[in-house]
Every structure is written in structure tokens, then in C-alpha cells.
């Protein structure tokens, strides 16, 4: 059984760097181990979320794309 997402961020329509910046802002309010789901339409956000997670130590559990919307599930460090 998968863990429930604590918060979903609608980042559709936002350009760089806002998807990452808003995720960084939101994740501050979560507890360690909680999950955040981010939905973005900026194609550059795929590489950005991977880089951001690598650099900050938060874990990127999933990244998928459906109908031009990129979905990321991240576990807070």
C-alpha cells in the first residue's frame, strides 16, 4: 500500500524557476518522510526536479508524463 500524498502543488503554466522555487517553499512546511506531488507543464522541469532532488537530498519517487503534464512525487528528506 503506497503512502498518501500530504500535499499536491499545481504548478501548471509556470515557467522556470517557479516550479522548483514553489516546491522548495512548500516542502519546508512538511515533516520529514512526507510526500509532495507536483504537477508542472514546463518541459525543463523534468531535468530540474531530478537535479533539485539530487542536490537537496529529497527523494524523487516517481516522475511521469500524461497529456503534457509532468507529475513528480517527492519524499521530504
Amino acid at each position: 500500500m503506497s503512502q498518501a500524498v500530504a500535499r499536491t502543488l499545481d504548478l501548471k503554466g509556470l515557467s522556470c524557476p517557479l516550479p522548483i522555487v514553489k516546491t522548495a517553499q512548500a516542502i519546508k512546511e512538511l515533516a520529514s518522510g512526507e510526500l509532495v506531488e507536483a504537477l508542472a507543464t514546463d518541459p525543463g522541469s523534468v531535468a530540474d526536479f531530478i537535479a533539485w532532488c539530487t542536490s537537496t537530498g529529497n527523494e524523487l519517487l516517481e516522475h511521469t508524463e500524461e497529456g503534457g503534464v509532468f507529475r513528480f512525487v517527492i519524499r521530504k528528506k
Binding site: 522556470c16 524557476p17 517557479l18 522548483i20 522555487v21 516546491t23 522548495a24 537535479a51 533539485w52 542536490s55 537537496t56
Partner: peptide
Amino acid sequence: AVLTAGAAAMG
């Protein structure tokens, strides 16, 4: 501003 916010988000 974009470079600044990106770098800040990366810690």
C-alpha cells in the same frame, strides 16, 4: 532573479 531563485532552491 531566475538564477538567484534557482540557486536558492538548490540550497
